[in-house]
Design a protein around this nucleic acid. Structure first.
Lengths: 237, 237
DNA sequence: GCTCGTAAAATTGTATCCAAAAAGGGTGTC
DNA sequence: GACACCCTTTTTGGATACAATTTTACGAGC
């Protein structure tokens, strides 16, 4: 793929920030960063502007960009917003109904979690498969809701370093068990075309994840997915 | 205020697009636009990138920026997303409780609508005051919810040309009457600290506005606020 | 010793210039 | 006459140069 430098730089920087390789509060000096990335300041500045618009960076006129810091409240609040949006998505899908092939696909996804949990303990490679499955499950519902605002707004709430379901790994068997049971119930509600139940199940599901995550962060029990944090070069010395 | 050219250009262009002075689908040629605005292409390009991130423009690599077109579904969907977010805001405020001075302030705002509606017909200058009051009312609840995601995400859903409550003028007495009754009920729910009622009242209030607006657009009954569309110079010839 | 002011250095914002890609036009061929 | 190909023009992306603002450092004054 031959994208523009701006896009490349945007993606690289986003990943670095999401993985915490550039620390919150840190100032991003343009010339230094541009040199480190092997581009001029022009595409870098566009990339910085993009990331500031996404909420990952903070911008102050004539004072440059700094990495935004997220505290416990930000994470809880983000999940709260995401909860109502994904609840709306689930409720929309339940109302519209879900076609058979999609249903079958999602049931196969749930099987992944079932077999992993059937072992009675958490296998590392199962965990990663579960994480990817979880992302697919949520994304599928959001996509089926067919509301571009939901997709876009949920995407934004995921742009918190260490706080995305794309990165976080469930380490606690009981939590994963409970969470996966939610998945089953949500799909059941979609199947039965029960928008109210789909809504409150999804809301609770997401809110619970937020609470759990915030707790994990406070106790320092955070593990990120290996394939996300990998393949990144060092930018700051 | 001596902001940067980039910020000025961003604001000017946003206003032009929101007011429909630059038509959907229209391509924004950088050099021409830069000349029209009296700046070089550099700040203009940053401004375009910002607006694309906000969702007002569409960007394609090496092919430039075009004004995004919004159809009926986009508007309904945007209001649906905004509805659950503002519902969450209202519910949060109801849960946390609302202090006396804020309550008093909001009740004074509602008086504005009451006196306007007491006349039994819609006076043009009352309408504008009502529009501003309505914005304040919603913004206040969002601000009191103290969740930066809600503020930011709701702001984004407002970025649809001709579809923001900041621009739209209620022309129908009955609609305004019903809408303002919602305001009273919502404030009552906040006062009584009833988050569930606050939530569903606000959701219905916003969803209804979306439905009504979409209907108005289809029948061509759209009037924008005078102070928003004014004070803008022509950019395209 | 501290504060304030001023000047130098560093950093960001803007303008201009060059390169690359896309759009437009014309000619040739089938 | 229609389509394809190539060349020119236009437009966008990126690099560099310059201007404006902020930060920092130093010294005078209290």
């Amino acid at each position: 793929m031959s994208a523009t430098s701006t896009e490349e730089v945007t993606n690289i920087l986003r990943e670095h920030i999401m993985c915490g390789q550039i620390h919150p509060g840190e100032r991003l000096q343009q010339e230094r960063l541009a040199r480190a990335l092997g581009v001029s300041r022009t595409p870098l500045r566009t990339a910085l502007a993009n990331l500031a618009n996404e909420g990952l960076l903070q911008y102050e006129a004539n004072r440059g960009y700094t990495v935004r810091a997220f505290d416990r409240k930000d994470i809880i609040d983000g999940y709260a917003a995401r909860a109502v949006l994904e609840g709306l998505a689930a409720s929309s899908v339940a109302t519209a109904g879900i076609d058979f092939s999609t249903l079958e696909k999602m049931e196969r996804w749930l099987d992944i979690g079932d077999t992993a949990l059937a072992k009675g303990k958490l296998d590392p490679k199962d965990i990663d498969a579960y994480r990817r499955m979880n992302v697919c499950f949520h994304d599928e519902i959001i996509a089926r809701a067919d509301n571009r605002w939901i997709s876009e707004l949920v995407r934004q709430t995921q742009l918190i370093p260490f706080a995305s379901n794309r990165m976080i790994v469930w380490q606690d068997f009981d939590i994963m068990y409970r969470t996966h049971d939610d998945h089953h119930r949500i799909l059941e509600a979609l199947k039965r075309r029960d928008p109210i139940r789909a809504d409150y199940l999804m809301r609770e599901h997401v809110n619970f994840a937020g609470e759990y995550l915030a707790q994990c962060i406070e106790t320092g029990r955070i593990i990120t997915a290996p394939d996300v944090s990998a393949s990144t070069t060092e930018l700051v010395q």
